[in-house]
Amino acid sequence: MTATTATIGCSSQSKYPSGDLAIWVFILAELLVFGIFFAVYAFARMNNVELFNEFQQHLDLNAALINTWALITSSYFVVRAVAAIKEGNSQLCVRWLLAAIAMGAVFLVVKSGEYAHHFGQGINLSTNSFYMFYLSLTFFHFMHVIMGMVILAAVAIKAHQGGYSASDNTGVHTGASYWHMVDLVWLILFPLVYVMR
């Protein structure tokens, strides 16, 4: 099977998503928490529209775009890693996973720069409602990026040791699904916090 025809996710129609079903229960729980946060942010903004609009303009939109592209690219690299292991190519899978982790690191560095800038200006959780939500939401997501990178690293190590094959790769799918969830959450977080006003 060539790289251009390799299938992603399940190899055929299935009743269940690829990866360990337990991770999907975990993913749905995580999405529920983030979904509640998003709704609370939007309704809290209703009472402070001018404040939210004013301080939103102080955020670094360039950094947000770089981070969005970094996570999307990272997710795509994970897709390639899954395709590689489905072809039985462990070492190619490892390289794609390392590339995905590197893009995750880009996200962490850029986001840390943003935090350093804010903290340098004396901004913290109690500065105002907007920054309370901005810092809480983005830091909660930041922690998930770190956790996702740890999971991808564990999968990469096992793949490097030959722990996965074309027929036995549930662990790769499991790690990939979690990482895509991290990307998915940021895709909503980015416009909600940085752009919508």
Binding site: T7, I8, G9, C10, S12, Q13, S14, K15, Y16, P17, S18, W24, S75, Y76, V78, V79, H173, A176, S177, H180, M181, D183, L184, L187, I188, F190, P191, L192
Partner: peptide
Amino acid sequence: ALMKGHLVGLYFMGLVRVKGFW
């Protein structure tokens, strides 16, 4: 944003090939 999320779910997560509840 919702469209992007939908595409990530369907294609990157592979849910396009899953039928039923999941």
